[in-house]
Design a protein around this nucleic acid. Structure first.
Length: 182
DNA sequence: ATAGGGGTAACA
DNA sequence: TGTTACCCCTAT
């Protein structure tokens, strides 16, 4: 008799997404050991995380198509293999680990900008960025790569998203909507 | 340890 | 009914 069944709470899902944003997809054990998430995910195993992530990426079957197949089989989002733009996801963690490469613009929210309800429902990139940083909730600010990873997990940004994000981050910090940490 | 195919009881 | 949390298995 296994566990009765505990449905995932929104807190747990948020912790999982944030954990993936920090450590990358597939680093389930690392996410579990992260003191930031271990408390909320303490009842979950690394396999649970893997399975949950799989369930979260299921395409809702609108049944509009003639699905003669078994109903329990669902389609996973087909990840477009954009030629040279290979895996942004797996690249991020190594960037953080190595801590090499160019400037690391760390960005943080002004203390006033935590107003969740004020931002419109619009999915303008600005709002997405702000939401990402807010949800990441990293006290020391967030790396550009961490932000990019987080956003890429939730939306489906264009292939040149890295460049877009960099430009937008610069705008936001110049206009004072974001604080650039040294 | 992780990825992924596949199954199923227990949910809504 | 369709969805989903959990399980089992195999390959890497």
């Amino acid at each position: 008799m296994g566990a009765p069944k505990q449905r995932w709470t929104s807190e747990e899902e948020a912790a999982l997404r944030a954990g993936i944003a920090r450590h990358g997809v597939g680093k389930w054990r690392t996410i579990l050991k992260d003191p930031e998430f271990s408390s909320t995910l303490c009842y979950r195993s690394n396999v649970d995380l893997k399975d949950k992530w799989r369930n979260m990426n299921v395409i809702v079957s609108t049944s509009s198509s003639r699905d003669k197949a078994k109903s329990a089989l669902k389609r996973i989002r087909t990840i477009p293999k954009n030629n040279e733009h290979t895996m942004a996801i797996t690249r991020v963690t190594s960037d953080i680990d190595d801590e090499i490469v160019d400037e690391k613009p760390i960005v943080s929210l002004p203390s006033e900008a935590k107003n969740t309800s004020s931002s419109k429902k619009s999915h303008r990139l600005d709002n997405i960025i702000m939401e990402a940083i807010k949800n990441l909730n990293e006290p020391t600010g967030s790396h550009r790569t961490t932000i990019a990873n987080y956003i890429e997990e939730q939306y489906w940004p264009p292939s040149d998203f890295d460049h877009l994000l960099s430009a937008k981050l610069k705008d936001l910090s110049t206009s004072g909507k974001l604080i650039k940490m040294a």
